[in-house]
Amino acid sequence: MTVVVVTDSSAGLPADLIGELGIDIVPLHVLVGDTTIREGVDDLEIDYTADTVSTSAPSPGELRAAYTAALARSSGDGVVAVHLSRQLSATWESGRQAVRDMGAEESVRLVDSLGAGLATGLPALAAARSAAAGATLDAVHRAAATAAAKSHTFILVNRTEQLRRGGRLSTAAGFFASELVSKPILQLVQGRLELREKVRTRSKAVAKLVSAAAAAAGSGEAVVGVQHLDAADAAETVIAQLRERLPQVREVLTAEFGPALGVHLGVGAVGVLVLPGGWG
């Protein structure tokens, strides 16, 4: 068999790639009042502006079950589990507890993606492609960790209410105490969500988002991921401008933010993930 890759539902990977590469997905939880929704499993319409909506990580028991099944499917070759940043979610810590409970520290390797959304999905994809090529557990783990370490993520947020309520922004005090911010651009720095700059209009913010991503990609090969929440037109604009500015980019992945991230980013959010150097 081969090494099996596990990730969480925040990864946002297209279903065809998940199926093709045999990636296992563990759902995050969205809490709507007294109802718990498993992202990607349960259907329920969500009002992202409601203050009764929140999120939670999978339990150690849920992750233990996922890792155990993946390890069995690998026929002993091992598991690499790539999860969203431990600075943003308790998922990685739940995973670590699950591995301890299993006594499987050598056969189940955890990777902190230092991000969320496609910033988790692309390292998981790098690992899965390495596994599909027959790489060892150490090499698959290294592929995920390398992709996570070199990625850059920028996010344009349309409204700030969810950021204020969710408390995930590390510079929140200064951000919300400052002058009115119409369209903030955020970035992930070592797994923390930080304010990059403040822009007055959405059109200018989209231009800034594209410029930040283009600068991060550099002049060499790169992989790009674009995500959005109910902002398909803006995402298409970003993709078109990036293709024009970065002709060396051969692969662009697109996805919508799932509910677990949408609760914190809000409708209209657009994110860009850049992996300079490509998969190598």
Rank of each mutant, 00 (worst) to 15 (best):
L242N: 05
D47A: 11
G103T: 11
V5W: 02
A50M: 09
A90N: 14
Q162C: 10
L180T: 08
S211A: 15
A127C: 03
L28P: 00
Q227H: 03
A234I: 11
V226T: 08
G266N: 08
A69M: 00
T55P: 03
A149D: 15
K204F: 09
A15F: 02
T171I: 05
A119W: 01
D112E: 12
T91I: 08
L44G: 13
V199I: 15
T120V: 12
L253I: 15
L31V: 13
S75M: 10
P14T: 08
R164G: 03
G19P: 00
T35H: 13
V274I: 12
R245L: 14
R192G: 04
D42H: 03
T254S: 15
A215G: 12
E93P: 00
E161F: 05
E93T: 14
V238S: 02
G277Q: 05
A149E: 15
R100I: 09
G117W: 04
A215R: 13
T52P: 07
S74G: 06
G121F: 07
L229R: 13
V263G: 08
I25L: 09
H29V: 02
S74H: 09
K204S: 13
V206T: 12
E39W: 10
W92P: 01
R86L: 07
G78L: 00
G12V: 01
G262S: 05
V82E: 04
L265H: 04
V189G: 00
G262V: 05
R96V: 07
G258C: 12
T52A: 15
A172H: 02
G280H: 13
V272W: 08
V263P: 01
K204V: 03
P123G: 10
D43N: 07
R38A: 12
L71D: 01
E93C: 10
T237N: 13
A149S: 15
A11W: 01
I23K: 02
L209Q: 04
A131C: 10
T2L: 07
G22E: 01
R86M: 07
H152A: 14
P276G: 07
S151W: 00
D43A: 12
V238P: 08
H228L: 01
V223M: 05
E251I: 11
T201S: 14
T68C: 06
L209N: 08
I155Q: 00
S151T: 13
V4Y: 04
S211L: 11
L114T: 05
V223T: 11
A172W: 00
A124V: 11
H141W: 14
T120Y: 02
G22N: 09
S219E: 15
D42Q: 07
G174K: 09
T201D: 00
